[in-house]
């Protein structure tokens, strides 16, 4: 996976772990559901989740995001869900961290093609000595191509980190 902007940071592994868990907990097998408790542990109590679609913008918190996801699962829009990170860019400003995380959604972990690709824009803050997600935002229809990842990962990225 491409990963730019973390060189020389002391909490690299914490952010790596957070992002790894982030994609693990929203993925689930057929008949199962996202791991809501583990997901909640990743987010600040003040977090917002924003989903942009051609039909409108969903302004959510974790609670309403869960209800939205449960409605999609209930009506059968998804019976399982697998999303993984394929590239990442980080910009740090003190205790503020911005992550542009490119993802792929697949019908199974072993599927050879993706169903959707996109970029999750995450804003993290340092809370009680830990990074917590304050904002998660993505546009379901943003044009995206792996060939264009160069622009995602270009540029240097840390300002005022400890």
């Amino acid at each position: 996976m491409l990963n730019v902007g973390m060189q020389g940071w002391s909490d690299t592994s914490e952010v790596d772990s957070l992002m790894s868990v982030f994609y693990q907990v929203i993925s689930f097998e057929d008949g199962d559901a996202p791991d809501w408790e583990r997901m909640a542990a990743l987010f600040s109590a003040h977090a917002r989740i924003t989903r942009i679609t051609p039909q409108g913008i969903d302004y959510l918190d974790l609670s309403s995001f869960r209800l939205m996801a449960e409605e999609l699962i209930e009506v059968g829009a998804f019976t399982s869900f697998f999303e993984c990170e394929v590239a990442r860019r980080l910009d740090r400003f003190g205790d503020v961290l911005h992550i542009a995380s490119a993802y792929e959604t697949r019908v199974s972990p072993t599927a050879l093609d993706y169903v959707e690709r996109g970029i999750n824009s995450l804003q993290l803050v340092r809370e009680g000595g830990k990074w917590k997600i304050l904002s998660l935002c993505w546009d379901t229809n943003a044009p995206f191509d792996l060939h264009g990842l160069g622009s995602l990962i270009a540029g240097e990225t840390s300002h005022g980190q400890n």
């Binding site: 809501w36 408790e37 909640a40 542990a41 987010f43 600040s44 109590a45 977090a47 959510l60 918190d61 974790l62 609670s63 309403s64 209800l67 939205m68 409605e71």
Partner: peptide, 19 residues
């Protein structure tokens, strides 16, 4: 969000404001 710390009132509100 820590689901364990959600107050009963907020849970009720969440149900009322079901997405």
């Amino acid at each position: 969000m820590d689901w364990g710390r959600l107050s009963r009132e907020r849970l009720a509100m969440a149900r009322i404001e079901r997405f």
